[in-house]
Simulated assay, not measured.
Amino acid sequence: MVANWAVFVTTKPSAKALNRALLLIQDFEFTEYPDESLWVLLTSKQLPSKDPGPKFLPVPDINGNNDFAPMSFTEINVNWLVTHQRGLETSTCLVCEQAYYYDPGGGGSVAGLTSEFRACRILYEPAHGMIVNLEISNMGFEEFMDKKAGEQEDRAWKWRSFPPDTNTYLEDMFNEDIKRANALREQRHGGFAN
């Protein structure tokens, strides 16, 4: 079974701007666009009791039916990806992780999820990789943060990219970029994205 990850939109974007953002966060390395997607666009506070399945592009205008539009990203306290007005303007989104409390000393405190979280502002294109690596615990949140820049005014950390270390990595990224550019061109030609 393939996991689907939640996307929340905390602004009122045009359908074209939203379709562009959702296209750019698609995984072009391990999925076949447009037939596969790993993102679920959630617009109702009444969350489904079971996985609603992925959302395929293009999506219609959600502004009349999006409970999350007036919310800040601090009000959505789960592992999630948020696109908001600043993100639409800068082609970035926020990948957020709910904090887990662990008592290594065994002092009687209960380990578990807290009401705290961390957010990282990341370009659309590598967001899928960050979500996947966090989900499978392959990498920790700190490995994506630019610690030198510190926490920003909106409480999000800047994303720190990794230097490519092999020619295979560069070739894979180039192939993903070509697929993404072709898909975006197709969405624009159809009038679904800007």
Rank of each mutant, 00 (worst) to 15 (best):
A181E: 09
F192E: 04
E135R: 12
R86I: 13
G87T: 07
E89K: 04
G140E: 11
K55Q: 04
F192A: 13
A156N: 01
E116L: 14
N63A: 03
L170A: 00
L134P: 06
E97F: 10
A156S: 13
F117E: 08
K179A: 11
G105E: 15
S49P: 09
N175I: 11
Y102V: 11
N79K: 08
Y124A: 02
L123V: 03
G107F: 14
N66D: 05
F56C: 06
N63E: 05
F162L: 00
N65Y: 07
E176N: 02
G106F: 05
G140W: 01
S44D: 15
L47W: 15
A183L: 04
N77W: 03
G108S: 04
A99Q: 12
N66Q: 09
E176T: 06
E151D: 00
P163M: 00
P70L: 07
V95N: 06
C120G: 00
Y100G: 03
G150T: 02
L113A: 10
D154N: 09
P60Q: 09
G105L: 14
R86D: 11
Y100A: 01
D51I: 15
T83N: 06
K50L: 14
R160W: 02
R180S: 05
C96G: 13
I122A: 06
S115D: 13
N167T: 09
D172N: 06
A183W: 06
H189C: 07
Y169S: 01
Q187E: 13
L184W: 05
P70C: 10
G190P: 04
G191W: 06
P60W: 04
E142H: 11
D154C: 04
L113Y: 14
D67L: 11
K50Q: 12
A69F: 10
N66K: 09
G150K: 01
I131N: 02
N138Y: 15
E186L: 14
K148T: 14
Y169V: 02
E186S: 13
A119K: 09
E142L: 13
E153C: 01
D165P: 00
L47H: 14
E89F: 04
R121T: 15
N167M: 08
L184I: 10
M130S: 01
N77D: 07
V110A: 08
G87Q: 05
F144Q: 03
P163L: 01
K50V: 15
A156L: 01
F56S: 05
D165C: 03
H128L: 10
W159D: 00
M71Y: 14
G191K: 01
N167W: 05
P104S: 05
A181K: 12
C93Q: 03
F162I: 03
R185Q: 10
F144R: 01
Q85R: 09
Y102K: 12
P163E: 02
M145Y: 00
L94Y: 11
R160L: 15
E75D: 14
D177C: 02
P52L: 12
M173H: 08
D67N: 08
K158L: 06
N79A: 11
Q85S: 10
M71P: 08
